[in-house]
């Protein structure tokens, strides 16, 4: 069951790379949150109930509901344009995404060979998504898409940390900490200041400092 969920998590990558509207990204974020929630339910067996409560709060409430709703509202209210504006055309992005996904499966196979990983797919897909979100951040012009890319990076790291949840539940919590602190920080700075000081939220405006 969890294999199916993980593969589904992986295929959201193709959708993100094909989409050209920001709403689609945000919906994917919500979907990823839901998938992570289900994965937590399926995979967390024997850790403390308090820990589980936190995990559910993080995945179901924050990742699936609060952040996507908040982002959607902010975009609508500030009339930020919905175009994603990549540097390279959509078609090539799709090819890149496919290649990364294939690499993810290879990495999973690889990991299974070392014999130390219980769930190779966890590892493969999350590594693939980590690479994909970095590509996404580099290949998009606008700050809002950078933030969305960062959130997807966090989701994939959360997935990776779930694979060691049995050995070291503390790491999963730390991943959550990263999520909350940096996520809130980024959003706060972004929406309160960049909106005020720059007209629009185009990364192209952030070019004052250079050599």
């Amino acid at each position: 069951m969890s294999e199916i969920l993980i593969v589904l998590f992986g295929t959201t990558m193709l959708y993100v790379f094909a989409a050209n509207r920001i709403d689609a990204y945000i919906k994917v974020l919500a979907l990823q949150g839901l998938l992570l929630f289900l994965l937590v339910l399926l995979n967390i067996g024997e850790i403390q109930w308090l820990n589980i409560a936190f995990l559910v709060l993080e995945t179901l409430i924050i990742k699936t509901i609060v952040i996507p709703t908040f982002l959607l509202r902010v975009i609508r209210r500030n009339e930020i344009s919905h175009e994603v504006e990549p540097y390279i055309p959509q078609f090539y992005s799709m090819l890149i995404a496919t290649a990364i996904l294939v690499f993810g499966f290879i990495a999973a196979f690889w990991a299974s060979l070392t014999g130390t990983v219980a769930e190779p797919l966890f590892f493969g897909i999350s590594i693939a998504w980590i690479i994909a979100s970095l590509v996404l951040i580099i290949n998009r012009k606008r700050i809002i898409t950078h933030i969305l890319g960062y959130m997807m990076l966090e989701n994939s790291i959360f997935l990776l940390s779930l694979s060691v949840a049995h050995e070291m539940p503390m790491l999963v919590n730390l991943g959550m900490l990263l999520d909350l602190f940096v996520g809130i920080y980024l959003l706060a700075i972004f929406f309160n200041m960049i909106q005020v000081m720059y007209d629009g939220s185009h990364i192209d405006v952030l070019t004052e400092l250079k050599d």
């Binding site: 790291i157 940390s161 060691v164």
Partner: peptide, 19 residues
């Protein structure tokens, strides 16, 4: 902004290393 964003990505990758 650049500082937080770039360093946060870095720190996230360090976390991957720890996992």
């Amino acid at each position: 902004w650049k500082y937080i964003f770039i360093c946060s990505i870095g720190i996230a990758l360090a976390f991957v290393g720890i996992v």
